[in-house]
């Protein structure tokens, strides 16, 4: 799409970054498309039905749910952030509108966020320096909004050593810097 215009990552590069600090690897995910899905008033039952048919997961509060082609996590009462592969779903908002019709308000969010995958044998020492999430105490699939270095982020625990972090795109550099500083401090 739009070969005329070349995309730039949130960190200002043509291709996503991979940064290693000690045992931590931070991988910028530039290949995910997002949209928000919020149930229209009184339409939750219809939305749930349409979402099921379209394979759009609508997980419980504070949960992330994987799937194909859509994954999703809960962000607010009757509201989710839905993600899919950018290559196939750059027009994720249009696709979801087709699937969910007037049961939900849908807004493209792809470039509102920078996504980082964090990987290390145990991410607790890093995260305890960055946010108030009780990372060792929450289960895999836990998703929450949290303040991280003054930035409102979403954190999804995929495993004790795997986290996906969504931060405000315009602050991608500051967020990565915070991860680097905290990693050097932690390990």
């Amino acid at each position: 799409m739009a070969e005329m215009l070349q995309a730039m990552t949130a960190l200002g590069a043509r291709s996503p970054a991979v940064v290693t600090i000690g045992p931590l690897t931070v991988t910028e995910r530039f290949d995910i498309a997002f949209a928000s899905v919020a149930a229209r008033r009184g339409q939750m039952a219809r939305l749930a039905k349409a979402a099921k048919a379209a394979k759009v997961p609508l997980p419980d509060p504070a949960r992330y749910q994987g799937g194909t082609p859509y994954c999703a996590f809960w962000v607010a009462p009757e509201m989710w952030l839905v993600e899919a592969a950018f290559a196939s779903h750059e027009l994720i908002a249009a696709a979801l509108k087709d699937a969910l019709g007037d049961t939900a308000s849908i807004t493209e969010q792809t470039d509102a966020w920078v996504a980082f995958d964090l990987a290390a044998p145990d991410l607790s020492p890093l995260l305890e320096r960055l946010c108030n999430v009780d990372f060792p105490g929450v289960p895999d699939g836990y998703a929450t909004r949290t303040m991280l270095e003054h930035l409102g982020c979403y954190l999804v625990r995929l495993g004790p050593g795997a986290v996906r972090l969504y931060g405000p795109r315009s602050s991608a550099k500051s967020l990565l810097h915070a991860l680097e500083v905290a990693a050097a401090s932690a390990w």
Binding site: A76, R145, M147
Partner: peptide, 10 residues
């Protein structure tokens, strides 16, 4: 009244 700004916006 409290607003969960860094949370679920409730």
């Amino acid at each position: 009244l409290w607003y969960h700004e860094q949370g679920d916006r409730s």
